[in-house]
């Protein structure tokens, strides 16, 4: 555990909580892509199946349980409790174009051809692109609520901090995981355009809106 890994995890946790609170307090999931949230629920489920087979630490186990619980709670709020506010017409990204290639890649490129390992690999690849339906929705509507941009910033920052964590671990622990690193770079790059808008607009008190 190093400072980048810990702040990365906390940033990830903050993102998840911000989104849950936003939906809960406003009683609305307007502007939120339910498809991205389903993908994240799949990501956590397929990655954390090792909860049943291996114990790493209290920290590790509790964070996994919290992430999974929050992911399903978010999906429940969007598709059940506040379904009437869900903007399905604008959430039109075709997720099969992500899930199918990512599934194929996980079978072809992995550390070990075993059931749990392929699911772990699938979750790493899927996470790297799971935000695309949300970004697609924002580009379609041309705007995002400020609280939604805080969520996206924390979510993007988390993987960027993990990149620093992997650099740290490479130098000080001789540890590296090429699958996680490559997917993590892809994931972080996808946020770069958003980071630019967040810093130049949202942090200066303006609403995030895209030119028509």
């Amino acid at each position: 555990m190093n400072v980048f890994r810990l702040t990365g995890d906390l940033s990830h946790l903050a993102a998840i909580i911000i989104l849950l609170l936003k939906i809960w307090k406003s009683r609305s999931c307007a502007g939120i892509s339910g498809k991205s949230q389903i993908l994240f629920a799949i990501v956590f489920t397929t990655r954390y199946l090792d909860l049943l087979t291996s114990f790493i630490s209290i920290y590790n186990t509790s964070m996994k349980v919290i992430y999974i619980g929050c992911a399903y709670a978010t999906v429940y709020l969007i598709y059940m409790k506040f379904r009437a506010t869900y903007d399905g017409n604008h959430d039109s990204f075709r997720v099969e174009f992500l899930v199918v290639p990512v599934g194929g890649l996980a079978v072809l490129v992995n550390h070990d051809f075993s059931f749990l390992e392929i699911l772990w690999t699938f979750s790493i690849y899927l996470e790297s692109v799971a935000i695309l339906p949300q970004l697609f929705m924002i580009s379609k509507t041309g705007e995002a609520e400020t609280i939604t941009t805080h969520y996206l910033f924390c979510l993007g920052l988390y993987r960027a901090l993990y990149l620093l964590n992997w650099i740290w671990r490479f130098y000080f622990e001789s540890f590296f995981d090429m699958i996680a690193i490559v997917a993590g770079v892809v994931q972080t790059v996808l946020y770069c355009d958003f980071f630019y808008l967040y810093i130049t607009k949202v942090l200066k008190g303006k609403k995030l809106s895209l030119p028509a």
């Binding site: 995890d9 964070m63 996680a180």
Partner: peptide, 10 residues
């Protein structure tokens, strides 16, 4: 460097 064996990250 070693390739990852156990996944200790989240």
């Amino acid at each position: 460097a070693d390739e990852a064996a156990a996944h200790d990250e989240l």
